[in-house]
Design a protein around this nucleic acid. Structure first.
Lengths: 297, 297
DNA sequence: TGTTTTGTTTAAATATATCTAATAAAAACT
DNA sequence: AGTTTTTATTAGATATATTTAAACAAAACA
């Protein structure tokens, strides 16, 4: 799998011009070249760019970042994420689960996660274990400690768990409000959305779950027939500000009769304009409060 | 969402040259044009192309197809798929489920599908109802009778059901052989693969399920550590023959120590060369026979 | 405020993709 | 076998994306 500089622009939210000048000035990336001298990039390079962007957003200067060795960058990335969750037991669970995942040991993974779901309930298990696990997986991918196969293996087991618990809840009637859940066309990671679906159902809300990669045009076609009170979506990927803005503007127009709830990449969401009418969900706690006491649309 | 002619080539398996000449000679498609006169296409046009290709593969001449009206094409498409399954009850189930899906009525859908799973078991329910339902959904999308939101809604409930039943099975120990299941990077539809995972687990096989969009590079990196006996994947999308061949050749090289099982689009698979070592699974029955009596690798 | 660092804009050149049109080759039909 | 239909190949022209390089603007910093 290789990427053009335009692909990198989309995936990182950094203009191609800037990517080039970082290369020229700081040797940030070392792209491969086609016969005709056009740059192209592999996963290794994509990861490096995402790491640079991430450290840059956390305050480091580009020149500084690019002067560091790979191992120094690794350390800084660790510092960004590996603050202890405060609870040693939780950290232990996460570590063990990842160990099992890397060994593709489904049986052991299942036992441990089932045990912790039994103990804490799915909601707290997600907060304490699954969510930190997913964060760490993302970081490990960026550090090249795991490959996509590991991530797919683990996320499908987690998907299985949440789906199973949602299935138990389908006995619940819904007395609450009507929520429409989906991800934009170019987003893949639906586990957070799936968990939101679970939480809403726990509170007896009525959920229409569409999952990932739903074209906005399709939402437009069906929206008026749905009579939903709330729309919830995640924007997780890095994006160029104008693209994100355009998407949210269109969404707002299409879903003007519902309250929109937006979660995800705060770097992207933070740069949006005209979102006073949108509920930006920054933490899981905020989300729980939102759904506990029904909002007025 | 719009597509370039190169996108259409990938999605339909028809060379861009041919797409252009079909337009010139038969007015097959009516692309939009950029300022600079470059063609681009919308979902409507993509569907039309896929319909034309499908009818063409079933034996009709291009010139004939393009002389037909939209409604005549619809009829022919129906004939291609709507042969009765032989059982009126099953057809009724499928129809009702789709009705509920179009209304986003999860409760009714759940009741009916749970009832039929209780009655037939998941395996027979898949064969009689879920699989025909998915086929019909695909056809309805191509006829523009449903939009992606409907398809996402329905397929996520079905995913929920299969995941739940797989979760029950995780108590099973595995005494059988070790299977690795995944889809190529550009494939989305994982329900068939998920069902295969269920069937294998029912037979006490050991399954490593990776799901959709796994890069082959990643398979390469982990394959040697896995010691799997079997690799199973689907190729569902239309592809250009050389691209499909290249993928299978690489896969064969990477997974040379395992038996490869391939299912999906017979138009694509049928054109492959050098696949004597690959088990082409053409029907569900064939698959069941394959996994009932362990193969020698 | 002045300096450094960083990101954006411009320009002209080149690479890549697409366009039209004509011809050749292959496949299907009679 | 000959005709029709369809697909593949070629060529030159144009559109779009990428390249380098320089100048400019904005932001960060001291």
């Amino acid at each position: 799998m290789t990427y053009s500089i335009a692909d990198l622009e989309q995936l990182s939210g950094i203009h191609s011009h800037t990517i080039r000048i970082w290369e020229q000035r700081y040797n940030a990336l070392s792209p491969l070249r086609s016969q005709g001298n056009t740059r192209f990039y592999d996963d290794q390079q994509l990861r490096k760019l995402l790491n640079i962007v991430s450290l840059n957003k956390s305050g480091l200067k580009i020149s500084k970042i690019c002067s560091l060795s790979d191992s120094e960058i690794d350390e800084l990335l660790d510092q960004q994420f590996y603050y202890s969750s405060g609870d040693k037991d939780d950290d232990y669970y996460v570590g063990e689960l990842i160990r099992y995942g890397l060994a593709f040991n489904e049986h052991a993974f299942n036992q441990l996660i089932d045990e912790s779901i039994d103990q804490f309930g799915l909601a707290d298990c997600y907060r304490k274990i699954i969510y930190p696990l997913l964060l760490r997986l993302g970081l490990m991918w960026r550090k090249d400690d795991i490959c996509p196969a590991h991530e797919h293996f683990l996320s499908n087991i987690i998907r299985q768990k949440i789906f199973t618990h949602i299935n138990y809840l389908s006995l619940h009637g819904h007395s609450g409000q009507k929520w429409l859940l989906f991800l934009p066309e170019d987003e893949d990671h639906d586990i957070g959305l799936l968990f939101a679906s679970y939480m809403l159902r726990m509170q007896h809300h009525h959920v229409i779950f569409l999952g990932s990669k739903v074209p906005l045009d399709s939402i437009k076609r069906i929206f008026s027939t749905l009579n939903v009170d709330h729309v919830m979506l995640f924007m997780i990927k890095s994006r160029l500000a104008p693209a994100a803005q355009h998407y949210i503007d269109r969404l707002s127009e299409i879903c003007s009769t519902a309250k929109i709830h937006l979660a995800g990449n705060s770097e992207v969401i933070g740069k949006l304009n005209h979102i006073d009418h949108i509920n930006w969900i920054k933490t899981l706690d905020e989300f729980e409060k939102t759904i506990a006491s029904p909002l007025n649309t």
